[in-house]
Nucleic acid binder design. Structure first.
Lengths: 142, 142
DNA sequence: TGACAAATGCAACTAAGTTGCAATAAGATA
DNA sequence: TATCTTATTGCAACTTAGTTGCATTTGTCA
C-alpha cells in the first residue's frame, strides 16, 4: 500500500482529495503504529498545516466509514487509528512508555473466528490481538 | 471465584473492606462482562449506594494495583474493568449494541508470547484478544 | 477507647470527543 | 473559464471521562 494506491482508494469512495486529508493519510501511512486524534493534530500542526480538531474527528469518522482506516483500542485515554492494509497484524503495547509497535501475524485466527460463529449465537467478523509487555527502550532505562 | 474468596483476597492486600468496595466487587463479580466507571457509578446509585465518582476511580485504581481487577479496552469512550479470575478468557464485542460477552479461551496463546519475546526485543507479559461481530440479540432485530 | 492511616466527598480542573451553524473550497458541468 | 452544487472546514459551545488538592470521615488495631 503506497500513497498512490491510497489516493485512488480515497477517490473511489467519492471523497475529495484535500490537503488535510492527504497529509493525514500520509502520516498514518508513514507511521509504523496507530496514531490518536490529538497526536495527528499535533503532527499536522508541526508540519505547518493548521487544522481544527473538529475536522480531524470528522475526517477520521469519514475514513472509518469507508473502511480506509480503523479505530483500535490500546489503552490510554484517546482512541488510535490505523490504515486498513492487506497485511493483517497485531500490536505490541509497552506498559511503560505506552508506545505501540506493529507485529506481523504469527498465527492464523480465522479458524477461531469460525469456531465461535459455529458454536455460539455470535457471528464473528473480525478480531484484534494485543500483546502487552516492556519494549526494548524501556528495558535498558529501567 | 466467589464473594468469600474475593473478600479474603482483598483483605490480604491490606485494603479495608468497606460497603462501597464490597458492592463494587459484587457488581463486577455478578456481571458476566466488564463494566465501565460510569456504569458502576450508575449501578451503585441504583442500589441506593451514594458514591462520588472520584471514589470509583480511586477504587478501580487501588484494586488494579493489587491485581484484583484489570482494565480492558473494548472500544467506546470509557475504559472497562473486570475481576482477574483464574480462568483466562477473551471477549466478544457486538458492533451493533456494543455489549460485551466473555468467551472461554479456545487456543493457547502462551506459545505466541514466548515466540515474540524470543524473536524481538519486546518482553511480552500478557495479551488480550477481542472478537468483533454481531450478537444473537442484534441479529434478530436487524 | 484513641490514634492513625485509609477511605470518601467536594469543587475545580484537564482532556477527549461532539454538535450546530455559518463560511469556504473542490471539482463537475456547461 | 464561470458557475453551481456539495463536501469540507472552522468556530464556539457543549458533554463526558477522568484527575487533583484538600478537608472530613471512618475502619482497624493496639
Amino acid at each position: 500500500m503506497d500513497a498512490r494506491q491510497l489516493k485512488e482508494r480515497v477517490r473511489n469512495t467519492g471523497l475529495r482529495f484535500t490537503k488535510i486529508r492527504e497529509s493525514l493519510l500520509e502520516l498514518l501511512l508513514e507511521s509504523g503504529a496507530p496514531l490518536s486524534a490529538p497526536a495527528l493534530l499535533g503532527l499536522l500542526h508541526a508540519k505547518g498545516i493548521t487544522v481544527n480538531k473538529t475536522t480531524i474527528y470528522r475526517e477520521l469518522d469519514a475514513l472509518g466509514q469507508r473502511q480506509i482506516i480503523r479505530q483500535v483500542q490500546l489503552g490510554g485515554r484517546a482512541a488510535q487509528y490505523e490504515i486498513i492494509a492487506s497485511d493483517h497484524h497485531h500490536h505490541l503495547v509497552c506498559l511503560e512508555c505506552k508506545k505501540v509497535e506493529d507485529v506481523d501475524m504469527l498465527k492464523d485466527l480465522d479458524q477461531e473466528e469460525k469456531k465461535i460463529t459455529a458454536s455460539t449465537q455470535f457471528t464473528v467478523t473480525s478480531h484484534s490481538l494485543e500483546f502487552y509487555g516492556i519494549c526494548k527502550g524501556c528495558k535498558t532505562t529501567i
